[in-house]
């Protein structure tokens, strides 16, 4: 494996949506450039509506860029790929399938035995034992989100694109899911690109945090989080990194604005 080549390589990427008037497109991304190396955990933070989901959807192959190139695993993105699994911000769990059918969905080409084994493992990981035969409408929002995460992990992709995957979870579940994700990432050698609006979450998880600006968005700053894991949330390094990102985004850590 050529670890030196970046897994995600974006240079001068532009993206706009057709606006209300045909001659006034909505510019969402401008001159975005970023690289993610093999095995890296990178978080993207930025204000709501700045284009984080748009960027991730371009990388996932669901949206075409307007200008520039997005290369993932060495080739320009042409469409979705089972080796790179997306966790959607709007829940993408299939309502007509049970929990176990959903979690096993990405394994539809594998043998039943292998599928059952992995499904059981990841259902246990996200703490949904006892709900294997339940339908999504019988679950809470946070439980549905855990089904989606289990489905993405069970598919054993090389790259995970996660769009605010823990947004709907309660505090404790979120902490546990973060630990699990870091553990899987470390043990299974995955590359993760993770969008969140939660700066603390980004600093707890990432090797590097990319801060996006307001729309039309670009990568405004990069903060390297060079802290050992598991991370001590009271350590000076953690607090310094957090406050740095807060101030880049125009806030101080206590919620006030910077003039």
């Amino acid at each position: 494996m050529a670890n030196a080549d970046p897994i995600v390589d974006v240079a001068d990427l532009w993206m706009s949506f057709p606006g209300k008037q045909p001659d006034q497109p909505v510019h969402v991304l401008e001159r975005v450039g970023l690289q993610v190396r093999h095995g890296e955990f990178v978080c993207i933070v930025g204000p709501s509506g700045c284009g984080k989901s748009t960027l991730l959807n371009v990388l996932g192959g669901f949206l075409g860029e307007t200008r520039g190139t997005a290369r993932v695993e060495g080739a320009p993105v042409r469409g979705p790929d089972p080796g790179r699994i997306f966790v959607f911000q709007e829940n993408g769990v299939f309502p007509w399938l049970t929990v176990e059918q959903n979690v096993g969905f990405g394994l539809w080409q594998r043998s039943a035995a292998e599928r059952d084994e992995r499904v059981r493992h990841y259902i246990a990981m996200v703490g949904l034992q006892g709900f294997e035969r339940s339908y999504p409408r019988e679950l809470s929002g946070g439980m549905r989100q855990r089904v989606e995460i289990a489905r993405a992990l069970a598919a054993n992709a090389r790259v995970l694109f996660m769009d605010e995957p823990f947004g709907a979870l309660d505090f404790l579940t979120r902490l546990k899911m973060r630990q699990d994700l870091v553990r899987i990432w470390q043990s299974e050698n995955k590359t993760v690109l993770f969008v969140t609006h939660d700066i603390e979450e980004a600093v707890q998880l990432a090797d590097r945090v990319l801060v996006m600006s307001k729309r039309p968005a670009t990568i405004q700053a990069e903060v390297v989080i060079d802290l050992p894991r598991p991370r001590d949330l009271d350590s000076p390094g953690y607090l310094a990194a957090r406050d740095r990102i807060f101030s880049i985004m125009g806030m101080d850590a206590h919620g006030g604005g910077v003039s």
Binding site: G79, W108, Q109
Partner: peptide, 8 residues
């Protein structure tokens, strides 16, 4: 999108 992502 989810289904296409899984190669379907």
């Amino acid at each position: 999108r989810a289904a296409q992502n899984f190669g379907m």
